[in-house]
């Protein structure tokens, strides 16, 4: 019992560290440096799995239309607002036990559908008319879409609901209720695996498995691979290229929807500006792994999550973003194909 209390205290310190970015264990002599490392590793891997799920959305879209879908992170931000609205409207933070579990699953699925549908619509309105235009026009259009979504998030935050603090200051970050209490679920030595950590694992791993199955073994997956390889040839083989692209946007968006709910529960705060950071981390993960490559996105996500956690711990939180962007630049300059990606020649 005492052990559990101590563990809960440590977790509270951890949560605090996550919230305001202080080195968690600087003042706590009780933990050895290996335990600190282990705890940061758990945090990093959990955040990394979430980043990986978002990164898959980037990498799928890039694989098929060669577009850096700049709006993807902001799509996830809107997903978080959607989830928060649902939680507030249904009073879900009060649900316990089995009802809470069913509610959580429904929330995940509903948010995934919302994000998928939104991503599909963005493709339809902002990207599809530009299929024949240059890559840069497409990228600029994506940046525009991203700004529109950010603004919608700002509007959404002004909704007069209790979960949005009455909507009085729409730009302020909002607290996301802890639908899964941050209590210890397991101990690996003195390293605590919390219940949100387990939630991350339970959501991300099956989804990645399902996606692998979809891409490898279904007809749609085969069509997606064909379009990614050569859209013209795929069209000549009777594949409805636009439908496949639409499906890719839907699937990528819905993975982002799952990820954003888990992210919000894990980090307990959402804001209309969070999409930029989430999107950047995920994009960097996708590039690190080799953009267009699904296992690469997962590897990259885990690496970025761990690098962030370690940089928070051993360098300084305020330098973490610079570290992550520095990694991005180094990869793009020295190994643009990423860790697992194939080398591409631009023009022969």
């Amino acid at each position: 019992m005492q052990r559990a209390v101590a563990a809960a205290e440590q977790l509270a310190i951890l949560a605090l560290a996550r919230a305001d970015g202080l080195p968690a264990f600087a003042a706590d002599g009780a933990l050895s440096s290996w335990e600190v490392f282990g705890q940061q590793l758990v945090t990093g891997l959990s955040n990394g799995m979430i980043i990986a799920l978002i990164a898959i959305g980037y990498t799928m879209v890039y694989g098929i239309v060669e577009l850096i879908n700049f709006a993807h992170g902001d799509l996830c931000m809107l997903g978080a607002f959607f989830a928060l609205t649902a939680v507030g409207a249904l009073g879900m933070s009060e649900w316990g036990g089995a009802g809470g579990a069913v509610g959580l699953v429904s929330l995940l699925v509903a948010t995934a559908f919302f994000c998928g549908a939104l991503n599909w619509s963005i493709n339809r309105l902002a990207y599809r008319p530009l299929r024949k235009a240059s890559k840069l026009s497409l990228l600029v259009s994506a940046i525009g879409a991203s700004f529109i979504l950010v603004n919608l998030g700002l509007f959404w935050g002004g909704m007069p609901m209790d979960v949005f603090a009455g909507g009085n200051s729409s730009a302020a970050p909002k607290a996301f209720p802890a639908l899964v209490e941050p209590e210890p679920a397991a101990h690996l030595g003195d390293v605590i695996v919390s219940r949100p950590d387990v939630l991350v694992l339970l959501v991300t791993v099956p989804l990645m498995g399902a996606l692998t199955w979809l891409v490898r073994f279904t007809k749609l997956g085969k069509a997606m691979r064909a379009v990614a390889q050569n859209p013209t040839a795929a069209a000549l083989m009777g594949i409805d290229v636009e439908r496949v692209i639409g499906a890719t946007f839907f699937i990528g968006g819905s993975l982002g929807g799952f990820a954003t709910v888990v992210y919000s529960i894990y980090n307990q705060t959402v804001s209309f500006q969070m999409g930029y950071r989430m999107g950047m981390d995920a994009f960097i993960a996708a590039v690190l792994g080799g953009i267009g490559n699904l296992p690469g996105a997962v590897l990259g996500g885990l690496l970025i999550g761990v690098v962030r956690a370690m940089s928070d711990q051993y360098i300084e939180t305020r330098w973490t973003n610079a570290v992550v962007f520095g990694i991005l630049i180094l990869i793009l300059v020295f190994r643009p194909s990423g860790l697992l990606g194939a080398k591409l020649r631009e023009k022969v």
């Binding site: 600029v140 525009g144 700004f147 529109i148 950010v150 002004g158 009085n168």
Partner: peptide, 28 residues
């Protein structure tokens, strides 16, 4: 009405939307 008073009535809150629309509409 409360929602509108909270955000929508302040024109500076439309800034990003304007930038975004400018980019997308010009591209399309």
């Amino acid at each position: 009405r409360t929602w509108a008073q909270n955000v929508l009535v302040n024109p500076t809150n439309w800034k990003f939307l304007l930038f975004g629309l400018a980019l997308v509409l010009m591209m399309v």
